[in-house]
């Protein structure tokens, strides 16, 4: 298959994804489409299956059933059955993942510049000066002082570590970013700054994003559409404002009311 017209087909088409852990359900029968430039929020409490789902569609976990069609630059591929080299190539050139815990997404004992440069070098860039320039450029974009380029992330604050993760992923110009609770564990003011940055980067770079979070306020700010998950299943989905302003499912109503409480 070699369809390539990003305006007329979804970037990501998730077909009935299920993942079981023995007899326990991780997630079950999830379907959605993600269009270029769109931000999808997957919300639910811990144990709702949202992280399992994210890992399945980002190529980090093999689903028990289903398919994940991704419209790569080289044509549409099923991420679940694609050969490992092709899958890893797509993952490090066209996709990116920002983890909840910076330790999962950064090399903590490699300098900020090295962290940002890794994907460039993995994709074949063999010019130190160019790696350096691009790293400096991205530090600036994520609002980290360029003087910190040779410091390791261990010396960074939580908010800076998340911004560095973002730079490390975006440096190769991916089209699709997966985010797992990117703001949890940060102070409220730090969260707000990170969300503002994400919002402007998404717009500026025309990024598509799938973001998992338990925080409805985060989705309100960033997501165009929402999927609400409970017990491994999608209980409600729709445009963000619609879902948050007029929740249909009792579970969504509960989530919305709990956030509205002072």
């Amino acid at each position: 298959m070699c369809i390539k017209d990003s305006d007329h087909i979804p970037l990501l088409k998730v077909k009935s994804i299920s993942r079981y852990y023995g007899r326990r359900i991780g997630c079950r029968g999830i379907e959605f489409e993600l269009w270029p430039g769109e931000v999808l929020g997957i919300v639910g409490e811990s144990g709702s299956g949202k992280t399992t789902l994210l890992n399945c569609i980002s190529g980090q976990l093999e689903p028990s059933e289903g398919a994940v069609w991704y419209a790569s630059n080289g044509g549409v591929i099923d991420m679940c059955v694609a050969p490992e080299p092709q899958k890893r190539l797509v993952m490090r050139t066209e996709m990116g993942t920002v983890y909840q815990n910076p330790r999962d997404g950064l090399r903590m004992h490699v300098s900020a510049g090295g962290n940002i440069g890794e994907r460039l070098m993995a994709n074949g860039l063999r010019h130190y000066g160019q790696v350096r320039r691009k790293a400096l450029n991205w530090l600036e974009k994520v609002e980290i002082d360029s003087e910190r380029i040779d410091d390791t992330p261990t010396t960074f604050s939580g908010g800076m570590q998340q911004r560095l993760q973002i730079a490390r992923n975006l440096v190769t110009g991916p089209r699709l970013i997966f985010m797992d609770e990117p703001t949890s564990g940060l102070d409220v003011s730090v969260q707000a700054r990170l969300l503002d940055l994400l919002k402007s980067l998404v717009t500026e770079l025309d990024l598509s994003m799938v973001m998992v979070t338990h925080d409805l306020a985060v989705t309100r700010l960033l997501a165009h559409r929402l999927i609400v998950m409970k017990g491994g299943k999608a209980v409600e989905s729709g445009l963000t404002d619609q879902v948050l302003d007029d929740p249909q499912h009792p579970y969504t109503q509960l989530l919305v009311s709990s956030i509205l409480q002072p």
């Binding site: 080299p85 090399r107 510049g113 090295g114 440069g117 070098m121 993995a122 994709n123 350096r132 040779d150």
Partner: peptide, 17 residues
């Protein structure tokens, strides 16, 4: 998979230090 980007990270670190 011949994924050797990380070797160059090591060289990058050397040069920057």
């Amino acid at each position: 998979l011949k994924e050797y980007g990380i070797m160059f990270v090591k060289l990058y670190e050397d040069i920057s230090r």
